[in-house]
């Protein structure tokens, strides 16, 4: 028997044992499915009322802005032109303004009633020459925007705790020491853990995605295959992060604290619940080093904008590099 087939046999055994442990732990298994569904429905109920009665104007630059931005009920944010127009096409903003050589350039979404009202107000109040631009695109409900965030958050918790916490528990209980006394190698053990958790994470994500979409019919205009690819690479990135945390940690309490310290910033800064558009630049810089940010950016681009592989290649590349670094650190530093 070759060493590769021996290795595969041992990995398969650990993989099956971990899956059995997870599937028989009905409380954890159920929670992984029930929790995200509960959140999706809670948000659907909370945000099921009429849209907010507030106009949002996005300005490019800050000089000599029209009077309209100071009207009561008008919220003004600053952004770059491409991002602003992108938001306009999704009706996340109602009007985009840009001052060009003494004239006022503006864009509206042809499908937006709010945009039409603001355009009238602008024409009525502005003396300078106006240059009109138009985009189109349907409005995105909050639930459409939040669903990728919830799926990503569920993946993050499942991957980080399912690996990080469990491996530390194995170590603290002496189970890893028992495995060390067998021919099982670190690589075989870690690979089996990664594959087992990846299967669980992907399966749970697919079930939650299909189940909630059947009932809530949220927006999904892109490729399912690409979305699966994002879930695969994103799940791997989260799992390797969990492994890196667990590779030396000996206390469950410390692992719990460490996992919370890592998940909390991602929950806040990766755009799970709200967009970071318009937030300070340093916040956006921090967000860009968090794997969940790239998972959600790529997933939203596919689900809401029909993005192709080339559009999300940067995010996938980042996640791929993150996986490679996480796995090599874990194998190098892992202690039974």
């Amino acid at each position: 028997m070759s060493s590769i087939s021996r290795s595969l046999r041992r990995m398969r055994a650990i993989f099956i044992a971990r899956n059995l442990e997870y599937l028989r732990d009905r409380a954890s298994f159920g929670w992984n499915l029930v929790f995200p569904v509960m959140i999706v429905f809670a948000l659907a109920i909370v945000f099921s009322g009429p849209p907010r009665a507030l106009f949002v104007v996005t300005v490019i630059g800050t000089e000599a802005l029209p009077e309209i931005v100071n009207f009561p009920g008008v919220e003004t944010i600053s952004d770059q032109q491409d991002k602003a127009l992108d938001r306009l096409s999704r009706q996340q903003t109602d009007l985009v303004l840009k001052i060009v050589d003494g004239s006022v350039g503006y864009w509206v979404n042809g499908n937006s009633a709010s945009g039409a009202i603001l355009e009238l107000l602008l024409k009525y109040t502005e003396d300078r020459p106006l240059q009109r631009g138009e985009t189109d695109g349907e409005a995105i409900r909050y639930i459409d925007w939040a669903v990728p965030g919830i799926l990503g958050m569920n993946m993050m918790y499942s991957a980080l705790w399912g690996i990080g916490y469990v491996v530390v528990r194995y170590r603290q209980s002496g189970y890893l020491r028992r495995l060390k006394a067998t021919p099982l190698t670190k690589f075989e053990f870690l690979s089996a853990q990664v594959l087992s958790r990846l299967l669980v994470t992907l399966t749970a994500s697919v079930i939650v995605f299909v189940g909630t979409n059947l009932m809530l019919d949220y927006k999904m205009v892109g490729s399912i295959a690409l979305l699966l690819l994002i879930a695969l690479v994103g799940g791997l990135a989260m799992i390797t992060l969990g492994l890196a945390i667990a590779c030396r940690t000996e206390s469950k309490e410390f692992a719990d604290g460490l996992l919370n310290a890592i998940t909390f910033p991602m929950l806040l800064l990766s755009g799970v619940w709200f967009s970071l558009d318009g937030s300070p630049e340093w916040v956006q810089v921090i967000a860009q080093v968090l794997p969940l940010t790239h998972v959600l950016e790529a997933a939203r681009a596919v689900m809401l904008n029909d993005a192709g592989l080339a559009d999300i290649a940067l995010s996938l590349g980042f996640l791929g590099v993150f996986c490679a670094i996480g796995m090599s650190i874990s194998i190098r530093l892992f202690r039974w």
Binding site: A17, E21, R24, G174, Y175
Partner: peptide
């Protein structure tokens, strides 16, 4: 073959 003094096995197995 080693029988350790205190070994916890995987839960649910």
């Amino acid at each position: 073959g080693i029988q350790f003094q205190a070994t916890t096995l995987q839960d649910f197995l």
